[in-house]
Design a protein around this nucleic acid. Structure first.
Lengths: 178, 178
DNA sequence: ATTATCTATAGATCTATAGATAATGC
DNA sequence: ATTATCTATAGATCTATAGATAATGC
């Protein structure tokens, strides 16, 4: 679903404050009160601009998916057809915005409240890189998502060579199914 | 780190109640009050058996990792060397215990409080199935983790053929790196 | 003696609404 | 007129500790 209308300057400001809080201090710091403080108004006033906290989170999710799409599109332009370039770009975006990445990807999506096409746009470069094989694109997506989460959570042994694991995955999916 | 001692019957009972709550109603239902209610005591009494809520969660995490290891070992026995059998078993365990799986895998680990070797035990069957290539084992692990989370969260399109994606991943990592 | 349990409660928060007041736009 | 903002507050919870009391084990 498309954005109903241009967001007001205040709404934009609120969203920026929410993003700052989330990115700097994590999801537990993203409270309506803290957002209001950051903007310089009282918490109840936020409800004139967003119906509830979930709406704020959905807007942040949409922004993150859009930026992921942009990062992948840029990687595709720089190295057309390279799966490795896409996984590198995906990893770099997630590491640069860990909390935002998690908010956007590590839970169910409120699809009806998202702008039209943002999901498709984010997955399109990957799908092109694997020659349109949907099953392969989904497998690569899962691989990259899993790598990012395990990496962010420190779940790999500290001595693990993560570059090698990323490389191995990109390589495994690069060759067409025999 | 090994369990300091045999858990008391009460501690076992508390853990079972916590698990029931988590599995049946999700993480937000796992409160000290609810656990106590389930056991039939008052919340403050729980603290005679577990130092805090985190200790309870860590015990649940350890149980989940142990069960995952057991499921993978069983799959390995049934179909030695089959990567596909392992990913199937992994998926089946996660789907049978979605909330427990998430608690155990989708966040940082309190390693010092875990029983010795439980992490290694869970990853060993995978490592064996890929001929001891650590990078490949980590890539497969990430793939499986990502698939499970995306599946549990309903992030794939509803028409997506998830069996095909799982199959594609197992196939991609089954052939040795060229 | 020691341990488990209980009552009472501290101490923190959160999201969101109601209703009044001030500011802005026609 | 309409919109944004404010104060006040409802209504929910949570985790965890203090200190008293009951039950159990030597």
């Amino acid at each position: 679903m498309a954005e109903r209308q241009d967001p007001s300057p205040r709404a934009t400001q609120i969203l920026a404050a929410a993003r700052r809080l989330l990115e700097d201090k994590g999801p537990q710091a993203l409270t309506m009160r803290a957002v209001a403080d950051e903007v310089g108004i009282r918490a109840p006033s936020l409800y004139k601009h967003f119906p509830d906290k979930a709406a704020l989170e959905t807007a942040l999710t949409a922004a993150s998916l859009r930026e992921t799409a942009e990062a992948l599109e840029a990687a595709e332009r720089a190295a057309p057809g390279s799966l490795r370039a896409l996984t590198e770009a995906y990893r770099a975006y997630a590491r640069a915005h860990p909390h935002l990445y998690r908010l956007a990807t590590d839970r169910p999506l409120r699809r009806p409240a998202l702008p039209d096409g943002v999901e498709d746009r984010a997955s399109a470069p990957l799908l092109r890189a694997v020659g349109g094989e949907a099953a392969t694109a989904r497998a690569v997506w899962a691989f990259a998502h899993g790598m990012v989460l395990l990496e962010l959570d420190g779940r790999f042994p500290s001595h693990a060579d993560l570059d090698a694991a990323w490389e191995r995955g990109a390589l495994a999916f690069a060759r067409p199914v025999p």
